[in-house]
Every structure is written in C-alpha cells, then in structure tokens.
Amino acid sequence: MPKPRSQLISIADTPYYHCVSRCVRRAFLCGADPLTGQSYEHRRGWVEKRLLFLSRIFAIKVCAYAVMSNHTHLVLFIDGETAKNWTSDEVLQRWHSIHKGTMITQQYMLQGQVPNYLQPLLDATVESYRQRLMDISRFMKELNENIARQANFEDQCTGRFWEGRFKSQALLDEAALMACMAYVDLNPVRAKMTDTPEHSDHTSIKKRIHSAKQNQQPKALHPFVGNPRKNQPKGLPFKLKDYLQLVDLTGRIVRQNKRGSRDLSFTPILQRLNIPSENWLTIATQFEQHTFAAVGTETILSNYYQNAGYKRRSKIPQAKQPLA
C-alpha cells in the first residue's frame, strides 16, 4: 500500500526531493502528436513560467527541471528555515498572490489589524498558510492543476490530465542530489530531443548556462555555493563550473553512445564524492531505474526508512549500489 505523502516527505531527513508528474494515456504536455500533427510545444512555456512563479511565492526552490513531451522532472529544495522567519504580513502577501484567502486575512491586509477576538483565528490561519507554503504537495498541486486547466480548456475537454499524484524521491546525500540533478538536466539529450544541454529548451541547465556566460546565476533557481565549508551560505554544495563541466561531458558520452570515449574520473565533483566513472554514467542515465522512494548511502537509507515506518528494506543495497 502506498505511503501517505506526508510520511514520504520529511524535512528532518532531507530538504531535497525529486518529483515527477506524467500525463494520462495519450495526453500531451507538449511536443507534437504524430497522429494528428498538432503541436503542443507552447505548453512548455506554461510549465516553466508557472514553475518559476511558484518558486518565488513558496519557500521551495527549484534546483533542476526538465519539461518533456508527456512528463516533467523537478528537483526541489524545501527552505523551511526561511519560511519560519516570515512575518505574518509576508505569509499573507505570498498566499494572496495565488489565492483570495479568507475575509479575516483580507481585512487584516487592508486595515493592518483585526478585532482582538479575531486575532487567534488570524494567527492560526497564518500558520496554516505558512505550512502550505513550505509543502511540496501543495506546490505540485498549484503547478499541476493550473497546467491541467489550461490544457483542458485548449483541448475543449474535461477530466484527468495527469495520471495521478506526482511521484517523489527523497535525495538523502550530496551524491544522490548531484546524480538526480544531472539525470534531470540530461533528460532531453538522452531522449534525443537535442544534441547538447545548452540547447535544451525549457530546462534548468540551459538557464544556468545562459547566466554563466554572463558570470551570473539565475535568480529563479537555487544557486550553487561551492563545496561544503564553514559558514557556507545556503545553496547547492557544489561549484557551478564543476557541475556544468560534468553535465557537458556526460551529455557528450550519452549523445555519442561511447561510454569509454572520455574519462570522467578526473572531474572534481566525482573525485570529491568518490564515485567511479562507470557508476556515474549508469546513475546519470538510468536514475529512476536504479532508485526507489529514497536515494542515499545504506546507513542514511536505513535511518530514513525507519523514520518513515517502512517494515521491509530489502531494496536498500540496490538503491545504494550505483552511487557506491
């Protein structure tokens, strides 16, 4: 029986999660329908625009994303610390940018206060909104429902657009995080939609490469802050240059289908995380095939499954193996 989403997503174990949403049957998120010839490419823009908009509202940052023909891949970071420090005004401003709120919250935002007898209810509502704004399930709902409504309106139909709830994976350590991000960023290359990562439209890797050429990082994405160190700022624990180089080299190998054509063992990230080149190529191209509800070392996985209430943990060695 599937675990409740509330048990699968635990900030105490990790703030990083890989989320996948797929369309039902022959529904098209984007791309071209080979039977009718109708193109849905413009829907890529819908997803990217909505995704980056929500990342500015929620305490959830986007680490990586790729919009494919009938599914999306996201790597998300829950910034719970920031959400807890928001004032009541900040929480309500953010929530009101996507929903009307209640009469009490509207009154507070207009007048700056509410009668004393309504204050406890206002405080409870603010805390409820705060929790929603750091909830991945709510984030995915706000993203997917919006896209489904637009697609159904365009197709002049009703009913399901997504096949069901999104799939999520907990990324429990740095190796799992980096491998999943690279897997997501290389999705279009592996699917032969493009030859190089920098030409992958509506992906995080293209946005990062474009900004890197201007010696910047995209404000809409969770930044790279370098290797772990004392007083490290909040962000991805890798150097941007090292990550882009690794993704570029891996993409060339995938595109040319020559696994031994380049030696990846000298790339700084793989050296720091002690991941062999062959294992890296396997996980970077087949991440979903070799992983399950959570990804990390055996020790970290054992703790995660225990906290999540799993009784069977026979898949731990399989999930761990490609990153060993």
Results as ranks from 00 to 15, higher is better:
R252H: 05
R255K: 05
A212D: 06
S314N: 12
R272C: 02
P276V: 07
A83D: 00
A59W: 11
K311Q: 12
K206I: 02
L8A: 00
C30N: 05
A64F: 09
M68E: 08
T105S: 15
H73P: 06
K234T: 15
V75A: 15
E154H: 06
A64G: 01
A148T: 03
D79Y: 10
E48C: 10
L273E: 11
K167F: 12
K241R: 15
F287P: 02
M68N: 11
V295S: 12
M181D: 11
E48I: 05
S302L: 15
T250D: 08
D33Y: 04
Q318R: 04
L244N: 00
Q271S: 09
V126L: 07
F53E: 15
S204P: 07
S261G: 12
Y17L: 05
S277D: 13
P223T: 09
M193N: 12
E174S: 12
T297G: 15
L273G: 14
G164Q: 10
Y40S: 12
Q119Y: 06
V126C: 03
Q169K: 14
N303W: 13
S211I: 00
I253M: 03
N152P: 01
G112N: 01
S211D: 02
T285W: 02
E198G: 03
S137Y: 07
A191V: 03
Y16P: 06
G80P: 05
Y65S: 01
V114P: 07
P120G: 10
L143M: 15
Q113Y: 08
L74W: 12
M134S: 11
V24R: 00
W86T: 07
E174R: 12
G31D: 07
L221G: 10
D123V: 14
L74N: 06
G235R: 13
T297E: 13
Q169N: 10
Q318C: 00
K241N: 09
L246S: 02
N279D: 04
D201Q: 08
A319T: 14
D173Q: 09
Q289M: 06
L171T: 10
Y16R: 11
F28G: 04
P197R: 01
P34F: 09
M103H: 09
K100V: 09
M109I: 01
S39G: 07
T299H: 05
A294D: 10
W95M: 13
L281C: 14
S204D: 08
N215H: 14
N187Q: 14
Q107H: 15
P276L: 13
V295N: 02
H210N: 11
K167C: 01
C157T: 13
N257W: 00
R25Y: 03
A319V: 14
V24H: 00
L74C: 08
E278Q: 15
Q216A: 05
E198M: 04
L35T: 01
Y183E: 04
D201S: 07
H99C: 14
E81S: 13
M1H: 02
S69K: 12
F287A: 08
K320F: 13
G235H: 03
A294S: 06
K207D: 06
I136Q: 07
T158H: 08
I147W: 05
T250V: 09
E145F: 12
A64Y: 10
G112S: 05
R252S: 00
E298N: 00
I275V: 12
S10L: 13
M1P: 04
W95P: 06
T102G: 03
G101E: 02
R130F: 07
E48H: 05
E163Y: 03
V67Q: 07
G309Y: 01
H290G: 02
H290Y: 15
N187Y: 07
C63W: 00
R272Y: 05
A151T: 03
